[in-house]
Amino acid sequence: MRLIAAYVIGLVFGLGIAISGMGNPAKVVNFFDVAGVWDPSLAFVMAGALAITFIGYRLVLGRPRPLLGDRFYLPTSRVIDARLLGGAAIFGIGWGISGFCPGGALPVIGTLNADVLIFVASLLAGILVARLILKRREQTMAARIAP
């Protein structure tokens, strides 16, 4: 049941990406290209998604626990640090270059479009390299703290 529900949720998310145009790099980039061929569509994607999620979360998170899970897994960190903002800044540069973000690209893997596949392969490489760097940094920090 958990797995079937997850599949349907992924499918609904993917259809939302496909219908909204978030999986089309030209549409994404044109939203940011106010100085050029501006296409404001993405503002409507964000507005629709945010309105539903804002209201839905308020109803759902008032419950004691999820229907098919033990508890709500919510991020606990509250610090706005250089790591958060630096990572976000780098993500934005990549998003501006390719026009794909992870949520936009993953569903349209299903089109087998070559650009999507190249993007996703590079995305995976970036995730792996970042994890290695973060892990190494943690180890050197731990080594420094240890007596």
């Binding site: 609904v12 259809l15 409507f44 994607v45 998604a49 539903i52 419950r63 999820p66």
Partner: peptide, 16 residues
């Protein structure tokens, strides 16, 4: 599309 993305987000919180 945005509404569907929102519904999926709410559903994943509600169920999982």
């Amino acid at each position: 599309g945005g509404v569907l993305i929102g519904l999926a987000s709410v559903a994943l919180m509600l169920f999982h």
